[in-house]
Design a protein around this nucleic acid. Sequence first.
DNA 1: TACAATCTCGAGCGATTTACTCGACAATCC
DNA 2: GGATTGTCGAGTAAATCGCTCGAGATTGTA
Lengths: 148, 148
Amino acid sequence: MRLSTKGDYGVRALIELALHEGEGPVQRAVIAARRQIPESYLDHLLAQLRRDGFVRSTRGPSGGHELARPASEIRLLDVLESLEGSLAPLGCLEDGEAHSEQHVVCGQRWVWQEIYDAMRARLAAVTLAELLERDRTRKGRIAPSYSI
Amino acid sequence: MRLSTKGDYGVRALIELALHEGEGPVQRAVIAARRQIPESYLDHLLAQLRRDGFVRSTRGPSGGHELARPASEIRLLDVLESLEGSLAPLGCLEDGEAHSEQHVVCGQRWVWQEIYDAMRARLAAVTLAELLERDRTRKGRIAPSYSI
DNA sequence: TACAATCTCGAGCGATTTACTCGACAATCC
DNA sequence: GGATTGTCGAGTAAATCGCTCGAGATTGTA
């Protein structure tokens, strides 16, 4: 049930870009150093984020990477699904798998469906801008009590 | 973010045992066939569940496996954490990792903390008895709307 | 007592995934 | 032209996953 480093690193990188929004491109080396990401690995993550329209890159001296859209319009859910693929906890929750054999024999699908839905809803409600804000004011305000 | 087959298969097996609660032991071969689990793999899952006190096994002819406690007292959360280890989506959410370097540089910990807490709360509220009930009446009652 | 049925335990193993590195190349700016 | 940056794809070592197998222990039955 662990997020892979792709998702983790990728979001870190985007937070770094959000931090310098409107200040021109940030170099790979800078992102990597500030967020503790292996530089050559970061390449692949940026490539994926570029493909899906989150990041724009420019080459040459003083080139680098920047957000392709405002941080307030980039949802955490979309970023993570770009980098990780589906976040579904069970295979039978994925689109298209709705009527497999496993489905009948599984017995726990409904709980995971609830959890999956709640997770996606929460991730969809968080934008890079909000992540950035909390990253700046490192107060980490107390999480409200909640339930599924 | 996918549950491994251990958790999936293990819960399936326990549902099968819950289905025959109070009827004496169920054989490995029966569980495996009914819930589509590789028989020799099931061995390891049952061993783990035995170690953690969910299952009691008896050898010899007409031996097999049964629940060590009432189905209504076995929480899905405990079963899954027994089989999967921690369900934490990020390493930095695990006990003991509270003050690592990653923590500072991560920036998304709080969202995942919220999701993780909600997930554990939901899984803690579901017992084998409830899973069984829904498995029997395959109505799969409509999930209530909810949020984190 | 033999023997068959069942669980028990640990070693091993092939395939896949993860988390990278590296090198050749392309673009841009000076 | 050369320095600086990004781009792309191949490759790879290690870990994890999802099992199988075999040798044994235990128990019920004839």
